[in-house]
Amino acid sequence: MRELRIHGRGGQGSVTAAELIAVAAFEGGVFSQAFPAFGVERRGAPVQAFVRFDDKKIRLRSQVYEPNYIIVQDSTLIKDVNVFMGVRKGGIVIVNTEKKPDYTVPEGVKLITIDATTIALKAIGLPITNTSLMGAFAAATGEIQFSALEKALNHRFPKELAAKNIAAAKVAFDIVKGAA
């Protein structure tokens, strides 16, 4: 079983990202499960969402403590929240930032930074970063196929909005793929 933890702020679409990644993974033939850290957080407060991937039916119901993957939707979270807590050796951390990192990830963990905000502003016209980060996640981890992500976005959003989000995801996907 592989696990993903998404850190974001209320309103940034962390739960939607978890849901769409789970849908895309399931589309690709693996079992998946997505759920938020259930809370009473309002817009702007730090939130978390989780995704599990496995080759068999997922029964585990506890929260994710030792993730293989971490997505950080907003780098300002890093100083507030221990976003790297529990990450497994060999794991991958994706951080949305336009800056060079002034923090370190645990040993044996790969850090990928991407300026998802700029990508989103260009492609969607709004600073909605979750779809770009999904693209980056697909490229970095291989847990989901881009075509499956595309399908999930098309299913979730109206045509025009889906197209913009797919474009954003594609830009991020290509950047991460190119860097690899």
């Binding site: 849901e19 849908v23 079992f31 499960q33 997505a34 759920f35 938020p36 997922i58 119901r61």
Partner: peptide
């Protein structure tokens, strides 16, 4: 509540 109601799964 939440554990099932808010979880996405097949």
């Amino acid at each position: 509540g939440f554990i099932l109601s808010h979880t996405y799964e097949p």
